[in-house]
Design a protein around this nucleic acid. Sequence first.
DNA 1: ATTATCTATAGATCTATAGATAATGC
DNA 2: ATTATCTATAGATCTATAGATAATGC
Lengths: 238, 238
Amino acid sequence: MPSPFGIIERIFALTKNRWLSDLHWVRAGQQTRSQKTQAALLDAAETLFAEQGVEHTSVAAIARQAGCSVGAVYHHFRDKKAVLYALFTRLTDEIGATTQAAVDPNRWQGATIVDIVHGYLEFLLRTEQGKIAFKHLAMEYARQDDELREHFVALQAELDDGLTRLLLARRAEIAHPEPRIAIGFVLDQLSSMLAARANTSLAPTQLGSRPDKRFEREVLRSVSSYLQLATPAKEDVS
Amino acid sequence: MPSPFGIIERIFALTKNRWLSDLHWVRAGQQTRSQKTQAALLDAAETLFAEQGVEHTSVAAIARQAGCSVGAVYHHFRDKKAVLYALFTRLTDEIGATTQAAVDPNRWQGATIVDIVHGYLEFLLRTEQGKIAFKHLAMEYARQDDELREHFVALQAELDDGLTRLLLARRAEIAHPEPRIAIGFVLDQLSSMLAARANTSLAPTQLGSRPDKRFEREVLRSVSSYLQLATPAKEDVS
DNA sequence: ATTATCTATAGATCTATAGATAATGC
DNA sequence: ATTATCTATAGATCTATAGATAATGC
């Protein structure tokens, strides 16, 4: 009979997320070096996946890049797919936290619609390129995986809902006849353009060659004219 | 010494394209059934690649789906990659031809900017979903392949240039202070939104749930207000 | 004693070829 | 006679495991 301490603990590494099935465990390390190795493996995998794609990255290559052996990989992760899931978690936890902070109404006290849209642009345009490359890859991979797809959709909805609330609270600024619809349209417009611009290799011709500042200016002009923004009615903003 | 007829003809299958290196040949069939098999193989590959991705589709699976053997695949194509290249060609030739027809100035005699944008939307929203799925996959694959990426960028530029010319010819309608910049921005906006909307699995929340007609209406409203379109000056349109 | 790591390798694919067989059309 | 197809398989990966060795920390 094994001692209680001898039992291998298989935990749901990604407890914050809804979408984790039994298959995606990672080992809960009990030594300091365990955590270091695990982090090194995830970093290595993230780099290689983004560079070469998941399929072209062998487990051996991940181990090599992380400076450990193949055996170590399988000590920490059930299989190659579990590595990918763990990376998803790291990414989506980060995005989720950022989103929550970004759409907090207190953060935007007294801000106009233009201020909010501007802040949104500023933030996403300055996000680290490596992260974006991996996010793209992750979303592409999520197409073929129901669990991951739902998770991404939920994340996007969280951001959309938060922004919608912020803008709806300022609907007094909007002269467009259907403010709700107009807000939804603007948010889609923004996320589409930012997604396209983030695609470094195949970005649209014009966007790619235009600096951020000019891009921001035209986006704000477009949003303002479409929503028919009036002078902000400060007293309506909670 | 082999007879002249015995020499295997390795042709550049995709002679219309600039980007073909020696590696991407397909056999020039000399019998009727050869063409049929080749077409069946390409159809099979297109379906499977779009469904499962290139890496998860084995050559054996392509052969099975096409109703022939693995040997037949290699009789027609140098290797698996050549199948993909041939599919690219089929796709890009089609896109190229459509683009040329679409941006022909004669086609748009007397049309306003709104007419042109509307036509562009109508056409792309009605393009077959299967084609779009494969195009997405192809673009994703092109990220890692310089030749293919350049080819796609050139195609996109062709469309952009043609549309820019059409709209610039109607600049009298535009009250935006910088018509050239505004046109570039609008074209990017359109292609970004259409790309996002075409992504069936991960489309933005609002766009995905909104029918085409309403989407078109808001796009036209956005473009009109951003460009500050006036009553079209018909006499300026060539 | 327990946990983490390494080395070596079995087993499962999958690609691409060789060589035999069948169909085509001059 | 030439072209197209099939069957069978060699050779190259790549995943995941087994079993041995090294490090940790109670």
